[in-house]
Amino acid sequence: MADFSLWVIVSNLLLAARWTIALSLIAFVCGGVVGLLLLFARISGVRLLERFVFLYVEFFQGTPLLMQMFMLFFGVALFGVEISPWMAASLALTLWTSAFLTEIWRGCVKSVPLGQWDAADSLGFNFVDLMRYVILPQALRISVPPTVGFLVQVVKGTALASIIGFVELTRAGTMINNATFRPFLVYTIVGLIYFALCFPLSLLAKSLERRLNAAR
């Protein structure tokens, strides 16, 4: 049993938290890009595409994120490609995030009144112009609060990467606990660091939502 001072424990956990942040950012940015593409496919009017995205969302929202990570980690290896826990976690989190963001954003797009679509149609807008000048600017405004709110779920979701062996905050907590046998202290600090990351985002989402509601 190693005798770590409180400072050593805290500083090591904070260092590991960088990886939690990095993983969250990758998942959010890549998931956002994929999610946007899926969103366009979902509202493109092409049946086959819409059906595909529907099933995609159903699958990623209806199965545990942990299963998705395991499947990616072991599934990619079946093709003879070596995949690191870091890659598997980033990929799984990206796919998972994209499914949720697509669904959130679809709700925002759908809340743009139908008359706007008809008006743009009657002015001879094509799909790209319709999206760019009419629908997205309006949908974007309402999409900000729920998107920031979902970012909290992404940060919390990265904790599962610890299970496939990626060393981020939760994994570091387990490792330090194994060395110090002070689980109460270690997991309290781990929890507080997550809280410090997520709570500001929650507050931001709530205040953005209030501001948006006040504006309407």
């Binding site: 689980p183 929890g191 997550y194 809280f195 709570f199």
Partner: peptide, 23 residues
């Protein structure tokens, strides 16, 4: 409510399973 909603379930689980016995 805020404490639970802003931390991962996995950490809550570890806290209950490993942390509480220590207490």
């Amino acid at each position: 409510v805020e404490l639970i909603r802003n931390t991962p379930f996995l950490v809550q689980l570890f806290f209950v399973y490993f942390g509480l016995p220590a207490a």
